[in-house]
Simulated assay, not measured.
Amino acid sequence: MTKEMLVQISGCKLYAKLIGHNNGKATIVMDAGYGDYSKAWESVINEVSMLSDVFIYDRAGLGKSESSSNRRTSREMVKELNGLLNEAEIKPPYILVGHSFGGVNTRLYATEYHTEVCGLILVDSTPENYRERFLPTMPEELQQAYNNQFVYEGNYDEFIESLNQLKEARRKLNVPLIVLSAGKKAHYSEESQVLWNEMQKEILGISSNGKFIIAENSAHYIQNDEPEIIVSAIKAMIDNI
C-alpha cells in the first residue's frame, strides 16, 4: 500500500507518503538531511516497507511541500513534523530514522515527544558540537564550502541555532538507539575520520540502550553506499522493541 498526501499544518501544506502493509508494528518515520527531502530514502524504502509502515515527508520549502514562514530551526521543524503526523493520523509509537541534519531533528523529537518514540536510528547525523570541535580540523576551503551550503533551507545562523537547541535539550532518553557512522567520508584525512567516528560514538551517551556501527565502505549517504546496513539496523530495532 502506498498513500501520498498533502497535509495542511499551521502555515503550510507538507507532502508525505505512507508505504507499507500495516502489520501492527511501530511506524518508521524517516527524516532526510539538510536540503534533502523524501527522495533521499529511495534506495532503502522498498525493503524497509516490508518490515513495517514507513512515513517519509518533505520538510517545508523542499520537494513537493510548500514553504513555511516559521523559522527554519530544528525546534520549528520538529513541531511541524508532530503536526503533520497528527493531521495525517499516523499513530505512535514511532521509530525515528534521521540522516545528517535529520538526525538533529529526530533527536530533538525524541526528547520533546518522548512518549511517542520507541526507537531512534541516527544515520551519520550531525553532532551538536560539530562546529566547535570538528569543523576546525578540516582544511580552510572545505570549511568555507560547508558554510556556503546553507541556502536551500534555513541559513547558517538557523543551523547553528538548531545545534544549540539540541545541546540545551540534551538528556538521557529511555529508548533503544542505533548510531551509524560513515567510515569512508569524502575529503576526510585519517585524523578527521577517526575524530568523526569518535564523535558519533559519543552520541550513544544519550541512551542507556545504544549500539554503534561503522559503515566501513560508506561516505555520508550510507543509505546509498551500503543500504543493507540501514535495513538491518531498522530490522534489529523492530526486533528489539
Score class of each variant (00 low, 15 high):
T2P: 05
E4M: 12
K13D: 04
A16N: 00
K17P: 03
K25P: 05
A26L: 01
A32P: 02
Y34K: 05
G35S: 06
S38F: 05
S43G: 04
V44G: 13
L51W: 01
S52N: 10
F55L: 06
I56E: 04
Y57C: 02
D58A: 07
G61C: 10
N70T: 02
R71M: 14
R72A: 10
R75N: 09
L85C: 06
E87G: 03
G102A: 13
G103L: 06
G103N: 01
L108M: 06
Y109M: 10
T111K: 09
E116R: 05
L122M: 09
R131F: 15
R133A: 10
T137Q: 10
E140Q: 05
E140T: 05
E141D: 12
V151S: 15
Y152H: 12
Y156P: 02
D157Q: 13
D157A: 13
E158S: 08
E161F: 04
Q165S: 11
Q165I: 03
L166I: 03
E168M: 13
A169P: 01
I178E: 04
V179Y: 03
A182T: 10
A182P: 05
A182D: 08
S192H: 08
W196D: 11
M199A: 14
K201I: 04
N209E: 13
K211W: 03
F212H: 13
I214G: 02
A215S: 14
E216M: 13
N217M: 10
A219S: 10
A219H: 14
H220E: 03
Q223I: 04
I229Y: 09
I229V: 09
S232Y: 15
M237P: 00
M237C: 05
M237R: 02
